[in-house]
Amino acid sequence: MSDLHQRLVQMVDKMPAFPGSVNRILQMTSSIDCTPKDLVQVIEHDPVMMAKILKLVNSAYFGLSRKITSIKHSVVFVGLNTIKNLAISIATMGMLSKTGPAGLDMNNFLLHSLGTATVAKLLGKRLGVASDRATDYFVGGLLHDIGKVVFAQFMPQEMERALKRVEAEKVSLPIAEMIEIRADHAQLGGMLVEKWQLPHTLVTCIKEHHSQELNDNTSEVLDCVVAANIIIKQIEFGCAGNLVEDRLPDHVAARFGMELTELRESMGNLDEELEKANAFICI
């Protein structure tokens, strides 16, 4: 691991979560009647909270035969009260500012993450995954860009330059990040979750979500996240600073048996599903 990566991995422990969820967690948990399912829902809609809680739940136990990839499973595994107090301890670390220090709009970023999560889960269901595994697709989508928040938070100037370079030169964000930071968000995010001992499929989902070529790491989850990411950018739901792409990588198109336009159209109207994500953020 490079020095830079090492440094960022350490800093992430101090990284706060998104303002909406921090406010809601603090508000909900100040009442003894806090509804567990509302608490779970807030955590599931915040990439930072989600990643941190999965990290803790997975790292504390070496006896786990199966890694834990969902908050609901975490609640059953370590108990509701422990999850609640983990959320509170993250919420009391402060919150990310609405306009990220690097000029990455956090609301738009969150919309992009939630949108990708929602569409990845829909695509997974379409490929016939069971409902307990569909959660992995949602989590893959939710966390795929987690590296960007880390850059924005801890290397704001470099990240701002990278974002500007994307606009000015029409290069992809990973390329701009390599120029400005010498690391890209996919690599960094993947490395973080790998170090946190999250499941391998989730690691590759994050690490490889910009890979154009078919490689050994490809999986159904990864392909769904890649496709969802491209679809969600095309329909301009949220924004996370990268260019809009107009085609699916060949192996992803092959997985679904169709090209981007056809895939998008075949999914019908996404408004209703995405409106849920939107409504959740805008409360």
Binding site: A60, F62, T82
Partner: peptide, 24 residues
């Protein structure tokens, strides 16, 4: 941690994570 075995003389003690409002 969960499912850890501790050997004590001729005995073994194994931890099993249960469900309670604290790690139990």
């Amino acid at each position: 941690s969960d499912n850890q075995v501790v050997n004590i003389g001729d005995a073994q003690v194994t931890s099993v994570l249960m469900n309670h409002p604290a790690i139990n």
